[in-house]
């Protein structure tokens, strides 16, 4: 089997668009609300989930034939939790600053439905290499949506992009202008509405999705 056969390429590209974890599979919504008030945590979270999904997919795929059917979910959970804990320990030891910034999100990764969803739906039936691609694809598909939502929320909620100011101070009502930051955008509820808008646009464009 070729490394980049059609099936393998699809395992990677489908979740980016036609099978996007958030827009189509509607997985991982919870963390999408929590971390998207600004762009930077959204990107970091997207990358962390990509790494963890890819490697837990590989591990589960390697041992998939030995896992007793009745306790497969528990085994999956153990693998994910162990992986996340190890990564978090390594971050704390070698890149302390990053780990301080990530403190809340690292725990959130374990509860991310994308992980369990992909382990159960893909890694349990497929070999390690396609599973790796599927994990990376799903992680990136998730990251794309997070980045879009984070971009809109940070821009409208704070008037900044990556912390750099884009809405000039002179526009603000405090300084006699006509503009006001939309405080609603900083609330998780707006993330839900933005995700819904994203799904709407996505489906309007890809008419063949059920």
């Amino acid at each position: 089997m070729a490394l980049f056969s059609k099936e393998n390429r699809q395992a990677f590209t489908n979740p980016l668009n036609l099978d996007n974890p958030i827009a189509v599979q509607v997985l991982g919504i919870c963390s999408a609300l929590a971390v998207t008030s600004q762009l930077k945590p959204a990107i970091v979270m997207g990358l962390s989930v990509t790494v963890i999904t890819a490697f837990s997919n590989v591990i589960i795929s390697l041992i998939r034939k030995t896992i007793p059917n009745r306790i497969r979910i528990i085994i999956q959970l153990v693998v994910v939790a162990a992986l996340v804990t190890i990564v978090s320990n390594i971050l704390k030891a070698y890149v302390y600053d990053v780990s301080v910034q990530l403190s809340v999100y690292v725990g959130l990764i374990i509860t991310n439905c994308i992980l369990m969803g992909r382990l159960e739906a893909f890694a349990m039936q497929n070999g390690p290499w396609p599973s790796f691609l599927d994990g990376v694809g799903n992680g990136l598909g998730y990251a794309i949506v997070l980045i879009v939502v984070g971009f809109v929320r940070e821009l409208l909620g704070f008037g900044t992009i990556f912390g750099f100011q884009v809405v000039p101070d002179s526009w603000l009502m405090d300084n006699g202008g006509l503009y006001l930051h939309n405080g609603m955008m900083t609330m998780p509820a707006m993330a839900l509405i933005l995700v819904a808008c994203f799904i709407w646009a996505h489906r309007a464009y890809n008419k063949d999705i059920e």
Binding site: K65, T66, I67, P68, N69, R70, I71, I74, I75
Partner: peptide, 12 residues
């Protein structure tokens, strides 16, 4: 037999 009780317990 990956579904037996003994196997499941030992595996876990």
């Amino acid at each position: 037999n990956t579904n037996g009780n003994l196997y499941t317990i030992v595996y876990a």
